[in-house]
Amino acid sequence: MISWGRKCIGTVVLIVAMSAIAACGNNKAADGNAVQTGNKAEQTAAASAAPAETGNKPSSEGATRTIAGEFGEVEVPVNPQRVAAIYLEDYLKALGVTPVVQWYHPSWGKQDYLNLDVPEFDISGSIEALLDKNPDLIIADGGVDAAKYEQYSLVAPTYRLPESVLQDSRLILTAVADALGIPEKGKAVLAEYDQKVADGKAALQQALGQEKVAVIRLNVADKTVALFGVKNRFTGVLYNQFGLTPVPMAAEMTEFQSIISEEVIPELQADHIIVFPDNGEWDTAANQEAIRILDGPLWKNLPAVKNGNIYRMERSHWQSGAITANLMKLDDLLKAFVK
């Protein structure tokens, strides 16, 4: 078995070189999706909704077990102690696990709503920063393709979530809990989540009935407006779990989001409009020009705006579809709609 742990700078250079070779040897799929290998067993494993365990070893220090991820089987610690969960830190926090690093990108920032006191890992930079934290398990989501998976796997055992779970935060939570070796904790967290969602859904339905809701994002850099559809991984939960009624345009969308002109906004037929910026805070200086859109005559004449039914939300948790973020969105909605 490969010995994982801290490596020297020379090893980092070797890793980068090996990663480049691995990347060249892999076919690329359209839209950045990971390519399945020709191994039939790996393809079968990738279709499962949660990691499949095989040949578990006794639970003791240094013991490992085998689970199946998107790119095949991987041997992971039975009791991982130093976990890096790339863009999945929300699920670790929900499960009471503190990651060794937090995902970060210079252009997009990080998930500030988690309030994690851990070092940032710049995913656009060198892998040396992650190597230095000596993780004993890496968990990754759909943003990691086959080439990147090979690179992470040189640092520590890496479990890439199966594609089959990525559209459902509940399935992701179960898969992450299983990979961490704490499936019962996952079931408890999920039961609590489901109860809060059920209670919130009942309160929202009583308050709103069939009134139609639109979710809008202000894209600050190019000063455009995006309508989020019912299949959006960030806000689709409002409709498929919280029971809100989407505006017709959002209900008919097959894509995650659609850029719409200001002239189209009155056609949304929205009784309520939820809006947030794509980056920064509402009072960030760079956002002020984009925010002026909301002061234009088309917006001011909307029935939703005239009735005071436009709600400015904070972008951090509204641009995550994970468990903690979803409950924070539910709290926002209850405060806005349930009097």
Rank of each mutant, 00 (worst) to 15 (best):
P266E: 10
N219S: 10
T235I: 05
L302T: 08
I273W: 07
A304W: 03
G209F: 01
Q269A: 15
A250Y: 03
W299L: 07
I273R: 11
I260T: 06
L268T: 05
S261E: 05
Y193G: 06
E289I: 07
Q167F: 13
T235G: 05
V220K: 11
G236P: 11
V189K: 14
F242I: 00
Q241R: 15
A202Y: 02
V275D: 02
P266H: 07
L238H: 08
M249N: 04
E211G: 03
M249L: 10
G181H: 06
L166Q: 15
I259M: 14
L218Q: 13
L302S: 08
A203H: 00
S169E: 13
D178W: 02
I172A: 09
P266D: 12
A304K: 02
D194M: 03
K300L: 10
H272T: 01
D222S: 13
Q241D: 12
I274K: 03
D278F: 06
S169W: 13
D178C: 05
E262H: 09
Y193F: 12
E263F: 03
V165G: 08
A214Y: 01
A250F: 01
L180A: 11
V225E: 04
F234L: 07
P297C: 08
E252R: 13
Y239T: 03
R217V: 12
L268V: 09
V230N: 10
P303H: 05
Q205C: 01
E192V: 07
P303D: 04
N240F: 02
P266A: 06
A304M: 05
E252Y: 06
F242M: 11
L227V: 07
G236L: 02
Q195S: 13
A221G: 09
K187Y: 06
P246R: 10
D222C: 11
G229H: 01
F256Q: 08
F242A: 01
E263I: 10
D199V: 00
G280H: 11
E184S: 15
E184A: 15
D222V: 11
L302V: 04
L204Y: 00
V213L: 12
L171A: 15
A226G: 08
V220T: 13
A286I: 10
T254L: 09
I216K: 08
L244N: 00
G200K: 00
E184K: 15
Q288N: 12
